[in-house]
Amino acid sequence: MTQLALVIDLNVCVGCHACVTSCKEWNTSGQAGPMPDDNPYGADPSGVFFNRVQTYEVGSFPHTETVHFPKSCLHCEDPPCVPVCPTGASHKREADGIVLVDYDKCIGCKYCSWACPYGAREFDEHSQVMKKCTLCVDRIYDQTLPEQERKPACVMACPANARIFGDIHDPDSQASQMIREQQGYALMPELGTQPANHYLPRHIRRGSDDSA
């Protein structure tokens, strides 16, 4: 069985937010859109985004690291957001493991978002349905796009090539290989959600006689 996913390489992510806005740009006019914005030109502008880039600081000066941390829906293999949905709008596809919301079925009860520990769902207050990363399902199978463009918008945009898209159940996929070779890990493993998206950790390369 296929499980499509993103592998995010924290070793090279520079935190540029390209994945954030390219995602918004593709999806707002796509089937998952629109992704509305409130107060777009006023105080506290706030909008629907499927992907965010956060920043963490590790350690204290001068041994500080800054880690940029992109996060979208992790397309969990055991997605807690699915069974709780009373309407079946929130579902995980058999064929490729993508977790989606069917806007036509969603009653906007928000229950799925309570069940997601990752804060990966965003409610569209205007059309009153739950929205989230679709793994760009309307790109990746689109036969009218050239083959090399049948990838999520965020993956295509990423200047650091820090986002790898692929089938993590296929041991030969680049995604699986990178997870294997670079100690790819899942977020909040203690929760047993088995996120399909994986993260590759930082690797520090030291100089020859760098004792620091």
Binding site: N11, V12, V14, G15, T64, A160, R202, R205, G207
Partner: peptide, 29 residues
């Protein structure tokens, strides 16, 4: 960014001299 990523993946060592550590410096070794 394209080049930094390739460089790091190819095993390059990146040293950043900067009073602040964000952006590019974040991925420095």
């Amino acid at each position: 960014k394209i080049a930094l990523s390739k460089f790091k993946r190819q095993g390059g060592r990146f040293i950043s001299v900067n009073p602040v550590r964000t952006g590019y410096s974040a991925i420095a070794d």
